[in-house]
Design a protein around this nucleic acid. Structure first.
Length: 208
DNA sequence: TCGACGATCATCT
DNA sequence: GATGATCGTCGAG
């Protein structure tokens, strides 16, 4: 078992919140043009499906865009937001259960130079500039909608064992950018590695 | 067919 | 802190 061993299917077949917290510290491995990019997940958000107004599957809504959400856990759900940024999710739960975990931020482990090049930053990179946000992360790792529906054990894109984080290192808080979602906007479904500099926005500290 | 808007980010003041 | 970029998706008509 190495840090680069793909997570087993059963990892995803658990309650969404549990998977979201457990994904912290895991690695995203991306094979690109023969080289390997590796980033460690430091921030996630859980989207609970039909009963969650912030979810694309709220109220049981099924559309062409969100179809992948209803697949069995273990595949990628990638969608375009604001017309210009892709967001990577890991689908969780059984088939027909539209729950997923949004990967919000990661810390470069390998191939940082390549990521920096892909991000085309003008000013000097600071912690979090490379992959400290869902849009940035996808840009740095060259993840787009071509991966929508792909299994997360894919040779080109996979989630691996990485370095699991102790529960005491996890903080939670309300999700970002879902103010429209009523009560659901306040649910503490955002998880992050405490004190990590690559987190997009530090959540209000509270042990999970 | 049309209008509104979004799980964001970089840049500007 | 505010704002513009930019376009696929969805629901209404």
């Amino acid at each position: 078992m190495s840090r680069l061993t793909a997570l087993p299917l059963k990892f995803y077949l658990r309650p969404c919140e549990e998977v979201a917290a457990d994904l912290l510290g895991r690695y995203i491995c991306r094979r690109l043009n023969g080289s390997r990019l590796v980033a460690r997940i430091v921030e996630t958000e859980a989207y609970l499906g039909e009963g969650d107004r912030a979810s694309h599957a709220w109220h049981g809504r099924v559309t062409r865009r969100n179809a992948t959400l209803f697949e069995r856990g273990g595949c990628a759900y990638v969608f375009l937001i604001y017309g210009m940024y892709d967001c990577l999710n890991a689908v969780t739960g059984g088939a027909g259960e539209p729950t997923a975990v949004l990967i919000r931020a990661a810390e470069p482990i390998q191939g940082a130079a390549e990521m920096e090049k892909r991000r085309r930053l003008r000013r000097a990179a600071r912690p979090g500039d490379l992959a400290g946000g869902p849009g940035k992360l996808c840009q740095a790792l060259a993840i787009d909608r071509a991966f929508d529906g792909a299994p997360l054990r894919h040779a080109d894109l996979r989630l691996t064992e990485g370095e699991p984080v102790d529960a005491r290192e996890v903080v939670s808080g309300p999700r970002v950018g879902v103010d429209y979602a009523g009560d659901a906007a306040a649910w503490p479904l955002r998880f992050a590695v405490a004190g990590n500099l690559h987190v997009s926005k530090p959540p209000v500290a509270r042990n999970a």
